[in-house]
Amino acid sequence: MSGFPVFDGHNDLTLRLLRGDVTAEGVASGLTDGHIDKPRAKRGGFGGGMFAIFVPSPGNKDVRHDEMRNASYDIPLPDPISEDDALTWTERGFDVMDDLENAGAVRICRTADEVAAALPGDEMAAVIHIEGAEAIDRDFERLHAWHARGLRSLGPVWSRETVWGHGVPFRYPSDPDIGPGLTEAGKALVRECNQLGILVDLSHLNAKGVEDVARISDAPLVATHSNAWAVCPHSRNLTDQQLGMIRDSDGMVGINFASAFLRPDGQMNAEFELDIMLRHFDHLVENLGEDRVGFGSDFDGALVPEPIGDCAGLPHLLSALRAHGVDDGLMTNITHGNWLRVLRKTWGE
């Protein structure tokens, strides 16, 4: 599968560096645990992707994962993050991305052509993404400054309230029609992102927020790391109605590898075979078409299926897709071609 480098819609490697779990030099040399480092990326054909700068909520993620092993759950939204706290963390996130590039682990890409050139290269192609826009000021001065530093993708919310809009809680079973959508400030943020050519990520937005983006945006609708609600009725997943809006905009969806968003029972349990992922793949292709589906792993931010394990395990997924009948043309599309198409269209190339 070496001819099919993977561009991935979402990972949280940056968070591990911000927390001090690993250094940029460790990512470059392979002296890490977690899901991503340069040697494992080369073994697995992980060519790069969207590297998220994410401000975590206080608390223990393992507690939330434990709750998500129940037959049903409704985990309250975390408290909002202050702009000052988010600003400090986000600025450090940009510094961490520079550290990764200086260590030779990634190449920060600002155009789709740069991504395409870097995918088969030595360093991972890295597109900078902000997940949850608490650090953005109302005048958008930071948005413009960070765009100049390489920001090319942004999610207005994570699963907590911001001045821009409302996210979905971790709730199963549940549809995503939970609460109000974008605020007036959030609608202005979408318009400003359109002007700059910054991708607006639908993942984590609730149903009304997705509808608001669809009404406002003149760019393709993209959910970087989401799955099919029809297969797993979790609040984080996309309904067929939402998939129709994404299809009609010529956007796309990156399949999320997080166990609880894949398994039909909504369980945070990695012990399952890849046929469940194939069910999501089939449903997304049926509703979006072959040109609008890719990967959005959530590596280093999620519990992924045991048959994959980490980025070195991507060939297991590609082999499962091949056995499922995916030919070379479709394999090229879903591993990187569809992402390159939507990035070019969004970024005005």
Score class of each variant (00 low, 15 high):
151 L>N: 08
289 G>H: 11
6 V>Y: 09
96 V>S: 11
98 D>Q: 13
213 V>P: 05
329 G>T: 14
346 T>I: 07
214 A>D: 03
248 D>E: 15
33 D>F: 05
207 A>I: 04
138 R>V: 14
53 I>W: 07
150 G>A: 05
290 E>I: 11
64 R>L: 15
159 S>T: 15
219 A>Q: 14
276 I>P: 00
68 M>I: 04
163 V>Y: 07
200 V>P: 02
302 A>G: 06
62 D>V: 14
260 A>K: 12
279 R>I: 00
250 D>S: 13
226 S>M: 05
70 N>E: 07
146 W>M: 01
201 D>K: 11
275 D>V: 07
299 F>S: 01
200 V>Q: 07
346 T>P: 03
172 Y>P: 00
241 Q>D: 14
221 L>A: 09
261 F>W: 10
110 R>Q: 10
249 S>G: 09
204 H>V: 05
295 F>C: 01
230 A>P: 01
190 V>T: 06
282 D>Q: 12
284 L>Y: 11
55 V>R: 11
137 D>M: 12
23 T>E: 00
230 A>M: 01
117 A>I: 04
251 G>L: 06
88 T>R: 15
95 D>H: 12
304 V>P: 00
14 T>G: 08
208 K>N: 06
206 N>K: 12
98 D>E: 13
239 T>P: 02
163 V>I: 14
217 S>Q: 03
342 V>Y: 09
106 V>D: 01
321 L>E: 00
55 V>Y: 12
49 G>P: 11
102 N>E: 11
266 G>V: 00
219 A>E: 02
19 R>D: 02
208 K>W: 09
106 V>L: 06
90 T>G: 04
4 F>T: 02
125 A>S: 11
96 V>D: 00
305 P>C: 02
243 L>V: 04
82 S>Y: 10
259 S>P: 01
127 V>W: 06
102 N>Y: 06
51 F>E: 01
152 R>T: 06
180 P>Y: 13
84 D>Y: 12
198 I>G: 04
208 K>Q: 15
5 P>V: 13
174 S>R: 14
188 A>Q: 15
297 S>Q: 05
263 R>G: 00
324 H>R: 15
48 G>F: 09
348 G>M: 05
213 V>H: 08
96 V>N: 02
116 A>K: 13
93 G>R: 06
282 D>L: 04
285 V>C: 12
28 A>W: 10
154 L>F: 06
228 A>K: 12
297 S>G: 09
108 I>W: 10
255 I>G: 03
60 N>Q: 14
24 A>C: 07
